Amino acid sequence: MATAGKEGTPPAQRNYKYVPAGIYVMRTGWGADDTYFHVHGIQLERGEVSSHSHNDTGHVEIHIGGEDILTDSGRYIYNSSCWKDWRHYFLSAKAHNTLYVDDHEMGVVPGVTRTRGVRTYLHAFEETEQYQLIDISHNGYDFMEDPIFHRRRVIRLTDNVFVIEDR
């Protein structure tokens, strides 16, 4: 990493599932023209340990042949800024490539502050000659009047055709 790939050898494993962190990454290789994508399955916690979490469970990033296709907006602004209302936007599901349901922020329990407790389940993380697949679900909208459990499958087919399926 320190030499931007000019020295050393690429890791043998291209695909990684960081289950405790909820980050799932697949790639076609390590070259500048290769493709990579990842899906966030962050476990949003309750209370103070949630301060570095975003409401972005199910967020997808896609990078094809040196080009960002879907990317994370980032946060850029902290609580001490006069723009902190924007900070809350950048932390929200609205600012990420994920599902946002009926003006309800994922993990929010009506009438209760700072309760998130979003949990993710990894259904599939697999690669064949025809496809790569990351399939997760989460309970981020189960506190709604009509509960929703969001399931997202991200599939990369040959020739870098992506299918994102939301249930």
Results as ranks from 00 to 15, higher is better:
Met1Ile: 14
Thr3Ser: 14
Lys6Arg: 14
Ala12Val: 09
Tyr18Val: 04
Tyr18Ile: 05
Tyr24Ala: 05
Thr28Cys: 09
Thr28Val: 10
Trp30Met: 01
Asp33Ile: 01
Asp33Phe: 03
Asp33Trp: 02
Phe37Cys: 01
Val39Thr: 12
Val39Asp: 06
His40Tyr: 13
Leu44Trp: 07
Arg46Trp: 15
Gly47Leu: 04
Gly47Cys: 04
Gly47Asn: 02
Gly47Ala: 03
Val49Trp: 11
Ser51Arg: 15
Thr57Leu: 04
His59Val: 01
Ile62Trp: 01
His63Val: 06
Gly65Lys: 11
Glu67Ala: 04
Ile69Tyr: 03
Gly74Trp: 03
Asn79Thr: 06
Asp85Pro: 10
Arg87Asp: 00
Thr98Gln: 03
Leu99Gln: 11
Tyr100Val: 11
Val101Gln: 11
His104Cys: 12
His104Tyr: 08
Glu105Met: 05
Arg116Pro: 03
Gly117Glu: 12
Val118Leu: 06
Leu122Trp: 03
Glu129Val: 10
Gln130Lys: 15
Gln132Ile: 03
Ile134Met: 04
Ile134Thr: 03
Ile134Arg: 03
Ile136Glu: 05
Ser137Gln: 12
Asn139Gln: 09
Asn139Arg: 08
Asn139Cys: 09
Gly140Asp: 11
Tyr141Gly: 09
Asp142His: 07
Arg152Asp: 03
Ile155Glu: 02
Arg156His: 01
Arg167Tyr: 14
